[in-house]
Each structure stands twice: as C-alpha cells, then as structure tokens.
Design a protein around this nucleic acid. Structure first.
Length: 589
RNA sequence: GGUCCCAUAGCUCAGCUGGAUAGAGCAACAGAUUUCUAAUCUGUAGGUCAUAGGUUCGAAUCCUAUUGGGAUCACCA
C-alpha cells in the first residue's frame, strides 16, 4: 500500500504545498459497511488544507484517482476517504505475490534471538500453567523465525534445590523402592506423588508441634522433615555420593516423563541449561560490579545494589556467606547464554509473578554495561487461574498437563465419531486426527488470548470445538483440501481471463495480503494472539466465500480456475499461520 | 503501606502507534443442506467500554484521581 501513501504525500504537497511524513498518512482497512478497500483518515490534513474534512477528502481522492491507475473510485464520509482499487490490482497481488512460493517468507535479518521457555522444576509433573508457557514460547520462537531471526530455543531446567530434596526425601522414607517400572507411573508423576506426600507429612508434623505449644513459625522451622530436607540439600551441595545418585535417579525418571509430554505438546529445544551447572555462576560478575562501583558490600560481607533512584529497592545480590542467590545465578546465566550464542536478543518466557525480578535483573545488567543488555525482554504472561483460584501443586489443585491432553483427545474422538466423519480412516489415521484436533482446540484456546492477560480455565466447561476455535480453522483447511483434491492436481491453471471479482473474492484476497504484516506485528509484540485472531478472520472470510460461491460448479471455467487458485492460496496461508502457533491442520476431518 | 498489572455484551475474548454507528465466539431465539464437508452460513436480541475529571476537531485507547481484582516488595527460587 506504499504506493497510495506516496501518492497521498504528493497530492498533499501539490494541493496544500505542505510536506508531511509517510507516518502521518493514517491508512486503514475500509469498514465493511462502506464502499472501498482502503481508507485514508483526512482529519489531520485539515490543519493545513484549511478546508472541511469532506472537501479535503474529495480533493485528495480526485487527484489520487487521476494519478493512480489502480484507483477506480472513492467516496468521502466525514474525514474518511474510502478508496476502491481495481479488480486487476487485487488479482495481480494474488498471482504475483500470494501464490508464488516466497509469499510471507522474510529474508534472514542477520539477528540472533534466544527464547528461553518451559524451564520446569524437576520435582513434579507439568500442569496447565506450564502448558501455556510452553505453547507461548514455542509459538513466539516460530514467529520470530518466520520474521527472519535466527532462533535458539532454550530450556533452563531447575533441577536442584530444596523442593527437589523434598521429593527425594519422601521417596526415601515412604517409597519402598517404587519405580516407574514397578508402579507403571510416568516418571514425573511418580516424583510428583512424593512431593505431595512430603507436604502432607510435613503439615502433620507442624500440627503436632503446634499441639505441643510451638508457634506456627517455629513449628515450620523445627519440623524434623524440613530439617532433614535441608540437610539433604547440604549433602547435595557437598557432593555426597548417596544423595547424588538418588538425585540422578529421580531426575532421570522426571526427564523421561517430560520428554513424553513435550513430544505430545509438539515443543522442542535447541539447548538445555541445568541449574545444577549454573547455580554457582555470577560470582565473578559480583567482583566486576564491585570494581565498577555498581554494587557495594555491607559490613556483614553481603553484596547489594541500590536501585532506589530507579524506583526499585535495594537488592541483595550475594549472601553474607558468599553464596549465590537467584539474582546472582541469573546474572551468570545471562552472561553464559551470551558467551555461548552471541545473541542480539534474549527473550525470557516467564510468568508475570516475576515481573519485579526481571526488572531488577535487566537494570543490573544494563548498569554493568553488559553486551546484549539492551536486547533483554521478559515475555511476561498472565497466570492461568481456575474458578477456585490459583493452582497449587502441593495441594493437588492443578490441571495436569497429561490428563488435560487425554481429555482433549477423547473429546475430539467423541465429536468426530458423533459426526461420522472418519469413514475410510485407518486406526492410526484416526488416532492422529484425534490428537490433531484435540491439541488444536487446546492450543488455540490458550494462544488466542493476549499473553499478558490472565486466563481463566474452567475444567468443568470443556474447550469448545465450534466458533472461534482451533477446530473451526482446521475444518476450514480440510474443506479447502477436499475441494482441491476433487479438482485434481492437474486441474488448476492460471485464469487471467476471469473478469470481475465478487465481493467475497476480493475480501479474501485483501485478507490474504495482510499475512506478512501480521507476522511482523506478532514478532514485534511477541504475540501469537495476533496470528491466532488473524487466521480466524481469514477462515471466516473463506467460509463465507465458500458458502456464497460455487467452486467446482462455477458458472464458467475461468471462475472455477480462479476460485481454485484462491482456495489453494487460502489453504496455504492457513496452514503456515497455524504452523506459527504450533498447530497442525488435517487434510480431512 | 510502596511499586507494577488488570477492568469492554450474561460468559470468554478482539479492538494496531487516538478516528466512522465499539466487534467476534459461546449461551438464547429464528432460518439455510436433493448442489464442492452443516465442526459451516444468515438473521434477531444483548453495551453508561468500572467511576469521575482532563487533553483533543475526535478517547475504549493518552493523563490524573477513585473503586474493585491480581501480583510483588525474603540472606526463597
């Protein structure tokens, strides 16, 4: 649409002898109720045209129509100049831009970006909150790659710490040697079971101590179980062989379980970092910061940074005993990532409960003048809440990721069978279809909302398969593929002789041309929701077209060929756009 | 208490850097299939964009205050 902007600049110069920047031309899609496809908002021009918005619009419109062969007409309503573009213009965009292979493919921009996501604890299985994180991270990585970035997907696994010792200790005390093999439980679920058992036993002990007259706080500190867990952590840090081997054994169970869940979710990583390797990092940065005067040391030997001038607090960056805190290791890990990959941008997909932490972390790294500090971004997403409130692993009030996927696939199966749509499918094809549809519904449900917003999930209300949903879009794709396969591979040729465009056809082309901008917009905003909402609009427009216009029984051969091409283009864009969300589209459903 | 985020139809959400009469889906109601897949399409109904001020030719969008909800402020991660 640059040619319209440029012509508008010229028109403004010619008519009103005023130079304006391209950004001052407010171009938007014309609303459905008006004639035309693009609209220029002319209110701002009245400042220098010294004329009414209507008159200004008419003058510019007249000139544009005279100068541009693509402009076939215009109308003015208040400060809105609605422009109609020639059918040939839209057809040529379909033929020359959308249908060729390079459509919506961005050239590499030479920048490298890291997306860290998932980053689970190894003491319990993944739940719905993790699912949102994983889908977001994976999709954002796909979108950035589509926008021309080189992308490195990383997973920083929190594999050490007191919470893991809790699971280990409970297993040691109450597990009787239970293994995934002996119990048939998935490894991460088995370990999570003992995390819950620990909490239950711990609470019992607290109650007992309180009955003996201790305060709640004292009881929490003095309960034998928590003391044992802390001892275990110390042994771990000291490299105690027995503890290490238990730790390795239980972690390996968890990793096997996670691998299964990741595979089913369709997410993947290029690089894993483990906190057991990174938790000691960052101490050299402390020295560096002290030397630069960014940090200061208190009398008790602890190291701090004063961020009160930035509206933040004083923050501890190293304990008085010289050990690392969360902030210390995150500084170190940021450095490590940069050394390993020389990245231009680094995205952290982490929930918004850690907004403050990342604000502080990024401020510190900037103050230290670290390379890449300007490219840090916290993709802060809202928590997933249940009607009953927040999910809590310890209390078992979570929607488990594996259970949820089971349910989605089951629902997909029931719906599909009820509609009798699996004739001629093999058993494998059926299973694959149920997976595709079930996951499509779940992924779309989670990705269509703005990442920043918190999400309410009611386990009692099943995820929809109709309307603004993944299956709706998948269905649209299946319809398209069905028509194309009926037409036959050799059935499509270019139909330059197809004359006038129907409104439904033009709307579809207009929507298709927007895809590259959508990728750009989604990449800039790190928002899969932008893509999700776009595909929905596109699918709706296609369905309308499909309903109004006969394709295989078109009025003549030219119309048929043209509509087949339009369908092919729509199918491709839907497929690619859904791919950016990590959602598969079926050939039949 | 300090700081940050959020508030749009009964429910779930769109609404891009300010632009037309605020849009979808679900739920409700009424219709469309001898014709390419009805997981579709068409229509009806549903709104004081939390409230009050301000900036502007123009505010759901920007600013201020208030109300309500959430998060965070550990020598936890």
């Amino acid at each position: 649409m640059d040619f319209i902007i440029n012509a508008t600049l010229k028109a403004v110069k010619h008519l009103y002898n005023t130079d304006i920047a391209a950004g001052e031309v407010n171009l938007q899609e014309t609303r459905k109720e008006f004639e035309g496809q693009v609209t220029i908002v002319t209110f701002p021009f009245t400042k220098f045209s010294k004329k009414s918005p209507e008159q200004t619009g008419n003058e510019i419109g007249t000139l544009l129509q005279k100068e541009l062969k693509e402009v076939t007409g215009f109308n003015v309503i208040k400060g809105f100049l609605n422009i109609s573009l020639a059918d040939n213009y839209w057809k040529s965009r379909l033929y020359n831009e959308i249908l060729p292979d390079g459509f919506a493919v961005f050239k590499p921009n030479g920048k490298k970006v890291m997306v860290e996501y998932s980053s689970p604890n190894t003491n319990k299985p993944l739940h719905l909150g993790h699912v949102r994180n994983n889908l977001l991270g994976f999709s954002v990585a796909e979108i950035l790659a589509a926008a021309g970035y080189e992308v490195v997907k990383t997973n920083l696994v929190n594999d050490r710490g007191i919470h893991i010792c809790k699971s280990m200790l409970a297993w040691q005390k109450f597990g009787n040697g239970e293994t995934p093999e002996s119990s048939g439980l998935k490894g991460d679920h088995l370990v999570g079971k003992y995390y819950v058992i620990f909490d239950k036993e711990y609470k019992k002990q607290i109650e007992d101590l309180k009955a003996d007259g201790q305060t709640e706080d004292d009881a929490k500190k003095n309960a034998p179980l928590i003391k044992e867990a802390q001892e275990m952590l110390q042994k771990w840090e000291a490299g105690d062989l027995e503890v290490m081997s238990l730790w390795e054994k239980m972690n390996s169970w968890v990793y096997a379980g996670f691998a299964e869940t990741y595979k089913r979710l369709g997410v993947s990583f290029d690089k894993f970092y483990y906190e057991s390797n990174t938790y000691l990092l960052g101490k050299d940065i402390i020295e560096e910061g002290l030397a630069k005067g960014v940090f200061y040391r208190k009398d008790d030997n602890s190291v701090w940074i004063d961020l009160t001038s930035e509206g933040l607090d004083e923050k501890l960056v190293l304990r008085s005993d010289g050990t690392s805190v969360y902030m210390t290791q995150d500084m170190g890990t940021a450095q490590l990532k940069h050394n390993d990959f020389h990245i231009d941008k680094s995205i952290y997909v982490v929930g918004n409960e850690q907004d403050y932490h990342f604000k502080v972390l990024f401020t510190i790294l900037k103050k230290l003048g670290k390379d890449g500090a300007d490219g840090l971004f916290h993709l802060s997403y809202g928590m997933v809440d249940l009607p009953s409130g927040k999910m809590k692993s310890r209390e078992g009030t979570v929607v488990d990721a594996d259970d949820l996927m089971d349910e989605m696939e089951l629902t997909a199966k029931e719906q599909t069978e009820a509609m009798g749509k699996v004739e001629g499918f093999s058993e494998d094809e059926k299973l694959h279809l149920y997976h595709t549809i079930g996951m499509g519904a779940l992924k779309y449900f989670l990705l269509k909302v703005d990442p920043k917003k918190r999400l309410l999930f009611d386990p009692n209300e099943s995820v929809d398969f109709q309307g603004h949903t993944g299956p709706f879009i998948q269905y649209t794709h299946a319809r398209i593929r069905s028509v194309l396969s009926r037409a036959g591979v050799a059935g499509i040729s270019k139909a330059h002789d197809y004359a006038a465009l129907a409104a439904e056809e033009r709307d579809l082309i207009v929507s298709l041309t927007q895809f590259p901008e959508i990728i750009q917009l989604a990449a800039e905003g790190y928002s899969p929701a932008v893509v999700a909402n776009y595909i929905y609009e596109l699918a709706k427009i296609y369905n309308k077209f499909y309903h109004e216009k006969s394709i295989l029984q078109a009025e003549d051969e030219a119309a048929k060929q043209f509509r087949l091409l339009l369908s092919e283009a729509s199918g491709k864009v839907i497929n690619k756009a859904m791919g950016l969300l990590g959602i598969e589209v079926p050939e039949r459903m």
